[in-house]
């Protein structure tokens, strides 16, 4: 078993109204960042886990996202990084 640090991004799914993201987009526009076309605000979760290898760590975290960390009805997730820890 090796130790891994896995970071996951979880954001509201495309098409789901994200009022926080919209408010931030509006604020960025008022600052002159006209190029911002969308902002999504979600969660960033960092897990430290023991797994045989990086692929297994990645697979475990995907399963965790499906079962608990993300709501499959409204959220998408992506594994940002899997690093040896």
């Amino acid at each position: 078993m090796s130790r891994f640090r896995v970071a996951v991004h979880i954001v509201p799914r495309k098409g789901i109204l994200d009022p926080q993201g919209k408010a931030v987009s509006d604020a960025l526009h008022s600052l002159g960042f006209d190029g911002v076309t969308d902002t999504r605000i979600g969660r960033h979760i960092v897990l430290h886990i023991a797994a045989p290898d990086a692929k297994a760590a990645d697979a475990q975290v995907r399963e965790m996202c499906g079962k608990l960390l993300a709501n499959p009805v409204t959220e998408d997730f992506e594994i940002a990084t899997v690093e040896a820890a």
């Binding site: 509201p12 789901i16 109204l17 009022p19 926080q20 408010a23 709501n71 009805v73 409204t74």
Partner: peptide, 8 residues
């Protein structure tokens, strides 16, 4: 699902 109120 129940999400954050629209007006936050």
């Amino acid at each position: 699902a129940l999400l954050r109120n629209e007006k936050l």
